[in-house]
Design a binder for these strands. Structure first.
Lengths: 138, 138
DNA sequence: TCGCAAACTTGCTTTTTGCAAGTCTTCATT
DNA sequence: AATGAAGACTTGCAAAAAGCAAGTTTGCGA
């Protein structure tokens, strides 16, 4: 076998999900793309959470290898790489939104706009579609 | 301040969620309670994923400190401790269910019953309630 | 062609995980 | 009352991952 990796592979969907993005940083990158419109290495690096550059490089590699994001050169500026969510990555939006909902309920310090929160509560699927199409129009 | 911990605390709900349960094992324990009916240390330890006992002890401590699970002595057997989800913990069920849905779609090896999966797809909130009441009846 | 932007690498220290073995308390049996 | 074993953890150490600071590479723009 070519991949002797440390994935649990027990048939459990939660184990699979955690093996794919269950760490301190992967979902943060997905958040940046899905909710903040980030697309470049520098944008991922310069967030308030301060990911280390080597870890960022590693996670981008992993997420791309797992088919969650896709990397392309920016035609306008060949120095830049543009990272985007694949379909598989977009399908994580519901997970992200449920996490937002939970944190908004339990973290006094969390800053989420009421408008944003109400959209999640009222019509999750509709809001998901809204985010998806926003991502396509770039 | 009493807690000089390493939480990011940037106001971002995703960062908050990941700081609380964004590691390789926390959600696994929540899965065990919510979906598998586990309630004791031994049950959490003896899953196919093989969590190390020291890490298990540590995660149970953290999850309790964060108010996600609650520990009580088993009145029938004073040797046993019974762990249960708090309200805050039950509110993570939607996150877990979305992860199941995602993995079922993308992991060929994931084993999730069709009945289970259809319930998630058809009526997420109803299914959440079903799980909640099942947890109460114990 | 010079300087600078953007995307990484490299080397090293610190923290977390994983593993194997041991401890402590309570129950059940003799 | 003594013995053994179940259940819930601790402890000590090695391996892996994360974090930090500095360096490298390639392309753009003047």
């Amino acid at each position: 076998m070519a991949t002797p990796d440390k994935k649990r592979d027990t048939g459990c969907p939660i184990a699979f999900a955690l093996d794919t993005f269950g760490d301190r940083w992967s979902l943060m990158i997905i958040r940046d793309i899905a909710l903040r419109g980030s697309r470049t290495y520098g944008e991922f690096r310069d967030t308030p959470e301060k990911i280390a550059t080597n870890v960022l490089a590693d996670r981008l590699r992993e997420l791309e290898a797992d088919g969650i994001i896709q990397k392309t050169r920016d035609p306008e500026n060949q120095r830049k790489n543009i990272y985007a969510l694949t379909e598989k990555g977009c399908d994580l939006i519901p997970v992200v939104l449920e996490m937002v909902r939970w944190s908004a309920k339990y973290d006094r310090n969390t800053k989420v706009g009421d408008k944003f929160l109400n959209k999640i509560k009222r019509d999750r699927d509709g809001f998901e579609m809204e985010i998806r199409s926003r991502l396509k129009d770039r």
